[in-house]
Design a protein around this nucleic acid. Structure first.
Length: 597
RNA sequence: UGGGGAGUCGCCAAGUUGGUUAAGGCACUGGGUUUUGAUCCCAGCAUCCGAAGGUUCGAGUCCUUCCUCCUCAGCCA
C-alpha cells in the first residue's frame, strides 16, 4: 500500500482553508450571543460552540436550480463536516423582485436536499431585511467617519463619471459635502423627503481605483416599494454590495462562500467590514466596540456550475416559465430543483454529483450525462424493479391454454433478494415491446425473430412462429409457442440457454397508463453560446407522452414512488398529476444501453 | 488596451515549504459474472502538467516572457 494518505473524495481548496483556519485556532475567541447582532450584542454572548459558520444566501426572486445544489452542499456540507453551522439567509434587499412564493420554494428545496436550519434550540433562518436597522446604523457610521456621502448625480451622470475599464473616474461634485450635511440628507432620504432616484448614498473610496467596484460604489438607494417582509416601513434599501458583508458579520459567519463573479468585490467587502469593525459609534457608546464584532468574515470564491444542454441563469429560467415554454417552475424538464424532483431525481444523486464534480476556481462545463449517471447510480440501489411495456404489440402464445392464468415470480431487486418477489400473471396474450421483435434481424440482435428462441423474463422460453402486419407494413402481432418445461424457477429452466430475454405484461391484467418520456430541454450543448438565441435551441422532442401497458402492481404506486422499469430506465409516479389508484409516470433517466441502436 | 481570476488525461480534479515512476472520480477500451444488451467484478488508460526560455543535482511546483479563456463600467444580486 502507498504511504501517502489518500485524499478523501470531496477534498477541495475551500476545505483546505477551513482546515488551516481551524488548525490555527482562528475562531477560538469568537463569541455568539445566540442570534445575529452587532458587536455589543455578540460581546455579551459566549464563545461560539459552532466551529465555523457558513451561510447559503439566496435572493428570493426565483426558484433554486442545480447550480444552487452545488452551493448548498458546499455550505451546509462544510458546516456539517467541521462541527459548524450553516445559516439559511434570504438576501432580500431588493423588494421589487422578491416574493413569499420564492421564499417558500427555496425553503422546500433546501430541506428536500436534506438540510435544515434548526440547530438545537437555535433557528438559523434569517432575512437580510431583518437587519435593515443595523444597516442603516452602519451607513450612518460610515458617514460619521467621513467614508460615505450623499450624491445627487443622476444615474446617467454617475455612470459617465465612473470612467471606463481603462480610464479613471471623476469625483462627484457632491463628494465633499460636510458630514453634517450628509447625515441630514441621509436622514431625509429615510424619511421620504426625496424622490426615488434623486439621491443616493455612496461609499467614499477612490474614483481612480483600477477596480471599478471601489469607485465610490452606491450603497443605499431610495425606492418606494412594498417589501415582502418589512412592508412599507422603508423607502430606502441597501445595495447587495453593502448589505451582504454586514449580513455575514452580524451572523458571525466565518467563511462567506460565493461564486467567482464576486471576486473583485472582495476588496470592498474587506474595506467595509474593517471600517465598521473599528469605527466606534454612538450607539455602542463607551464600549469602544465597532459596529460589528470581530473576527470579521472572509469571502472565498469558487467557480459556478455550468451544465451542458440546460440553462442555469435565473433570467433565462424566468423567461422559460413566464413565456410558457414549460409548464411551470416544476416542469420536469427544467433544471430547477423543483423540476428535478418531479422528474424523479433524488437528493442523494445530487450529493453524489457535487462530490464528483468537485469545487475549484477553474471554469468548467460538466456534461449533463454526468448528472444522469449519478442519478442512475443512486436509483440502481434504491429503486424497486417493475415491468412496463412502453411501445406495446401483442404476443400470442399459440400453444398456451386460453383463459389460464399462471403466477410468475419477479424479484423486486436483483441484488437485494431480501426485498422479496412479487407475482406477475402470465396468460396466453401478452404485451411485449415492439422493438423486441425484428422481422429482419440486424447483426447482433438476439431477441425475438422468426424461428428464434427467447425467454419471457421470469416465465418460459418461447419460440417465435410468425407475425402479422397491417396494410402499412407495421407488425401488429407476433405469435409463438412456449416450451412447457422451461419455466423460471423450475428444474428445467436452465435446460435451454437463450441469450435473449424480454419483458412482457399480461394483456388481460395490464394497467394502461400515461407515461411521459423526457429528454433534454435544449438541443444545443451550450444554449445561447456565441450570440445565439437559446430560445431557438429548445429540443422539440423534450417531452413525449405515451400510453404504456404496466404490470398490475404499479396501479398502487404513490406519488414520488420510484421504480426501475426493467430494461428501460428509472421512472417516478408524478407528484402532481397522479391520483390514488391512477398514477402517471415520468421517466427520470434511461438505463445505460451498450447495444447502440 | 486597466483591475481581478483561471489554464494538469475526452470531462472533472488532487498536487504540502521544488525531490524520485503526476492522486482519485467519471467517461472510454478489453475481459469475467449475470433470466435487465442494466448492475457488479478485474485490467488498461497523461514520459507529461497552456507555450517558450531560465534557475537547480532535481520543477506541474521558483523566475522571465508570451498565448488562451473567464470576469468587472446596475441606483440587480
Amino acid at each position: 500500500m502507498s504511504e501517502k494518505t489518500p485524499i478523501p473524495l470531496g477534498s477541495n481548496f475551500i476545505r483546505a482553508i477551513v482546515e488551516k483556519d481551524l488548525a490555527e485556532q482562528k475562531f477560538n475567541l469568537k463569541k455568539w450571543a445566540g442570534s445575529p447582532g452587532d458587536a455589543l450584542h455578540q460581546a455579551a454572548g459566549h464563545i461560539d460552540s459552532a466551529k465555523i459558520r457558513t451561510r447559503f444566501p439566496p435572493e428570493p426572486n426565483g426558484y433554486l436550480h442545480i447550480g444552487h445544489a452545488k452551493s448548498i452542499f458546499l455550505n451546509f456540507g462544510l458546516a456539517r463536516d467541521y462541527g459548524g453551522i450553516c445559516h439559511l439567509r434570504f438576501d432580500d434587499t431588493n423588494p421589487e423582485k422578491e416574493s413569499q412564493e420564492y421564499v417558500d420554494s427555496i425553503s422546500d428545496a433546501v430541506q428536500w436536499l436534506g438540510f435544515g436550519w434548526q440547530n438545537g434550540n437555535e433557528n438559523n433562518l434569517y432575512f437580510a431585511s431583518d437587519y435593515f436597522d443595523e444597516m442603516y446604523r452602519a451607513a450612518v457610521g460610515l458617514i460619521e467617519a467621513g467614508l460615505a456621502y450623499v450624491d445627487a448625480q443622476s444615474a446617467d451622470e454617475m455612470r459617465i463619471n465612473r470612467g471606463t475599464l481603462t480610464e479613471a473616474g471623476k469625483d462627484s461634485p457632491f463628494r465633499n459635502r460636510s458630514i453634517a450635511e450628509n447625515l441630514n440628507l441621509f436622514n431625509e432620504m429615510r424619511d421620504g423627503k426625496h424622490a426615488d432616484g434623486s439621491l443616493i448614498l455612496r461609499a467614499k473610496i477612490d474614483m481612480a481605483s483600477p477596480n471599478i467596484n471601489m469607485r465610490d460604489p452606491a450603497i443605499y438607494r431610495i425606492r418606494r416599494a412594498h417589501h415582502h417582509n418589512t412592508g412599507d416601513k422603508w423607502c430606502i434599501y441597501p445595495m447587495y454590495t453593502f448589505a451582504h458583508p454586514i449580513e455575514d458579520a452580524l451572523e458571525m459567519i466565518t467563511h462567506s462562500i460565493c461564486t467567482l463573479e464576486f471576486e473583485d468585490q472582495r476588496p470592498f467587502y474587506d474595506w467595509l467590514l474593517d471600517n465598521l469593525a473599528k469605527a466606534p459609534t454612538e450607539a455602542n457608546g463607551e464600549s469602544k466596540l465597532g459596529l460589528i464584532a470581530t473576527p470579521v468574515p472572509h469571502q472565498y470564491e469558487f467557480s459556478r456550475l455550468n451544465l451542458t444542454y440546460v440553462v442555469l441563469s435565473k433570467r433565462k429560467l424566468i423567461d422559460l416559465v413566464e413565456q410558457k415554454y414549460v409548464s411551470g417552475w416544476d416542469d420536469p424538464r427544467l433544471p430547477t430543483l423543483a423540476g428535478a424532483r418531479r422528474r424523479g431525481y433524488v437528493a442523494e444523486g445530487f450529493k453524489l454529483f457535487t462530490d464528483r464534480i468537485g469545487v475549484s476556481k477553474a471554469d468548467s462545463w460538466i456534461d449533463y450525462s454526468t448528472l444522469e449517471d449519478c442519478m442512475r447510480e443512486v436509483l440502481n440501489e434504491s429503486a424497486g424493479r417493475r415491468i412496463a411495456v412502453l411501445d406495446p404489440i401483442k404476443l400470442v402464445i399459440e400453444n398456451y391454454e386460453a383463459g389460464k392464468v399462471e403466477d410468475c415470480f419477479a424479484p423486486n431487486h436483483p441484488q437485494q433478494p431480501e426485498l422479496g418477489k412479487r407475482i406477475v400473471p402470465l396468460t396466453k396474450e401478452l404485451w411485449i415491446e415492439r422493438e423486441d421483435f425484428m422481422e429482419v434481424p440486424s447483426k447482433g440482435f438476439f431477441r425475438l425473430m422468426q424461428g428464434g428462441l427467447v425467454r419471457l423474463r421470469y416465465g418460459y422460453v418461447v419460440k417465435c412462429t410468425g407475425f402479422e402486419k397491417d396494410a402499412a407494413g407495421n407488425v401488429t402481432m407476433v405469435t409463438c409457442e412456449y416450451l412447457p418445461d422451461t419455466k423460471s424457477g423450475t428444474a428445467g429452466a436452465d435446460a435451454i440457454k437463450v441469450k435473449g430475454n424480454i419483458h412482457w405484461v399480461s394483456a388481460a391484467h395490464a394497467y394502461e397508463c400515461e407515461v411521459r418520456l423526457y429528454d433534454r430541454l435544449f438541443s444545443a450543448a451550450h444554449p445561447g453560446e456565441a450570440g445565439t438565441d437559446y430560445l431557438t435551441q429548445l429540443n422539440q422532442n423534450s417531452i413525449t407522452k405515451i400510453t404504456a401497458q404496466l404490470e398490475p402492481s404499479l396501479k398502487n404506486a404513490k406519488p414520488e414512488d420510484r421504480f426501475q422499469f426493467e430494461r428501460h430506465g428509472y421512472f417516478v409516479a408524478d407528484k402532481k398529476d397522479s391520483v390514488a389508484g391512477k398514477p402517471l409516470f415520468n421517466r427520470t433517466v434511461t438505463l445505460r444501453d451498450a447495444w447502440q441502436k
